[in-house]
Structure formats: structure tokens, C-alpha cells
Simulated scan of single mutants.
Amino acid sequence: MSRTMLTLATSVTFIYLGLCAALFIFQRSLIYFPQPRSLDRGVVMITLQVDGAKVLVTTRPHNGPNALIYFGGNAEDVSFNLPSLATAFPDHAIYLMHYRGYGGSSGKPSEAALFADALALFDQIRTEHPNIVVVGRSLGSGVAVHLASLRPVARLVLVTPFDSIQELAAHQFPYLPVRWLLLDKFESWKYAARVDAPTLVMAAEHDEVIPRTSTESLFTAFRDGIAVLKIVTGTSHNTISDSPEYIPLLQGQSSN
């Protein structure tokens, strides 16, 4: 090999290793985009103490057996959903968890932290509300599937879900060894087979963020008879909740 070719090969190798190092170091900043809390005045908050972190939960208290837990997307202020969810579910207590680093919660988000916080929230409210609907949107679908695989969820709704963040990242960075570098993999397909709750998988017809193949792969990971797939026409990843079909589907109403 000539000196020029050797120099070129060495430069390419260093650039490639630099890209791998950058992805490893900054990977969580590519997954999580913490947002402030928009609703504050007149809102009831509860605080979860989990592993030294204070995780805030925006709530609408309601007596009775029914509750709804909502896990949002990676750049979502979940408190924004409280008015519409409270109206749509008048007989449910509503709980919207602010991930670590989001909405005033302390700590930093990670897959392990979000999973632990979701389990802690479920266990705390189940003492008062044994009938809990769990809704997870986008990133929150990964949290919701994991929770439903370990706890007796009454019903599970997954909005614009994926089968695995690892697979999405591998598709986005095809020339990098993502499977070796990624810390937070959110392999929802792995947990789906353990879910017993009736499940709705809700996909946007024109989702530009989560490929349809990823959503359909997750759907097929559930056992037969557990999940139903619904494509919400005329919507994208961020506009699916604007559809007139969205709230009725959350409520469990059939739609043709």
C-alpha cells in the first residue's frame, strides 16, 4: 500500500471512529428533548420519589376505580393533554408523567429511569384505582408496553409506536455499529408478547417519523387476539391527535 493510500485509510478510520464516539457520547441528546410544563396554576401535582429523583406528575384527581396514565413523546409537554383527556374521560383520574428532566422533574432521562418511574407511578395509584388504562405516544409507547408487560393494565393504547429505537437508529445511521453503541434501545417487540391487556395500536397514515413497517412489526409481536391495528387517515406523526377519530379511539369506541 502506498503512503498516500495508507494516509487516506488512516484518515477515514479516524473520521469513522470519531463519528462512532460522537454518537455514543451524544446519543441521549438525540433521543430526549426535555420540555417545560405549560400548565401550572390550578393543577394538582404529585411527586414520585424514585432512586433519588423527584418525578412530577400532572393529575386530575377523581374518586372511583378508573384511572388513565399517559406517557408522552420525546419532545412533548404532557400537561398540554390534561384538558382534553379530562373531558374525554370524565370518570377517570388522569395522570401525566413528566419524564426526568421534563416539566420540572429532576434527574436525566434514560430507558431504565423511565421504566422504573412508570412502574412506581402505576403501583402508587393502583391502591386507589384498580382499573387503569395506559396510553403511550411515540417514545411513550415504549414505556407503556414495558409497563403493561409487568403490571395488570386494564387496556393499552399505543399511539404512533415503534418496534425498537435500536432498529430506527440503525436505519438512520446504517454505516455505524448502532447495536453496539446504543444504550437506550426501547425494544418494545420484546415486551409485547407478555402483554395480556386488550391493546390498540394507532398509526398515522403519513407518519414521517416512525416507518409503518416499524409499527406493523410491533403489532405482529403481540399474541393473537390481543392487539388491533388502526390507521388514522390523513394524519402525520404530530397531527394524529388533531383527527376527530383520535379521542373516540382512545375511549375505546370502534371506528370504521
Results as ranks from 00 to 15, higher is better:
Ala116Leu: 02
Leu250Gln: 00
Leu150Thr: 13
Arg37Pro: 04
Leu156Tyr: 08
Val157Tyr: 00
Leu85Phe: 11
Pro248His: 14
Leu82Lys: 08
Ala75Phe: 02
Ala148Ile: 07
Lys54Trp: 06
Tyr70Ala: 09
Leu139Ser: 06
Asp117Val: 00
Leu229Trp: 14
Leu121Asn: 03
Ser106Trp: 11
Thr87Leu: 15
Arg212Met: 15
Ala227Ser: 09
Pro61Gln: 13
Pro61Ala: 09
Arg41Thr: 14
Thr59Met: 12
Thr199Asn: 10
Asn63Thr: 15
Leu114Gln: 04
Met202Gly: 02
Ile69His: 07
Val12Ser: 01
Thr235Ser: 04
Ser29Trp: 15
Leu150Ile: 13
Lys185Val: 07
Ser255Arg: 09
Asp224Trp: 10
Pro161Asp: 00
Ala203Val: 06
Gly136Arg: 05
Gln27His: 07
Gly252Cys: 03
Gly103Tyr: 05
Gln49Ile: 14
Phe26Lys: 08
Ile94Ala: 04
Gly136Tyr: 10
Asp163Phe: 11
Thr10Lys: 01
Ala118Met: 13
Arg37Asn: 14
Pro248Lys: 12
Trp189Thr: 15
Gln124Glu: 13
Ser11Asn: 01
Ser105Met: 10
Gly140Asn: 02
His129Ile: 03
Leu48Asp: 03
Val195Ile: 04
Val209Phe: 04
Gln35Asp: 08
Arg28Asn: 00
Ala116Asn: 01
Leu82Ala: 01
Ala113Gly: 11
Thr58Gly: 09
Ile69Pro: 02
Leu218Val: 08
Ser243Gln: 03
Thr7Tyr: 10
Ser188Asp: 11
Val43Ile: 14
Ala221Asn: 03
Leu181Thr: 10
Arg155Trp: 13
Ala221Phe: 12
Ile69Cys: 03
Asp51Tyr: 00
Ser106Met: 06
Asn81Tyr: 15
Arg137Leu: 01
Phe162Val: 02
Asp224Lys: 03
His146Asp: 13
Leu17Lys: 11
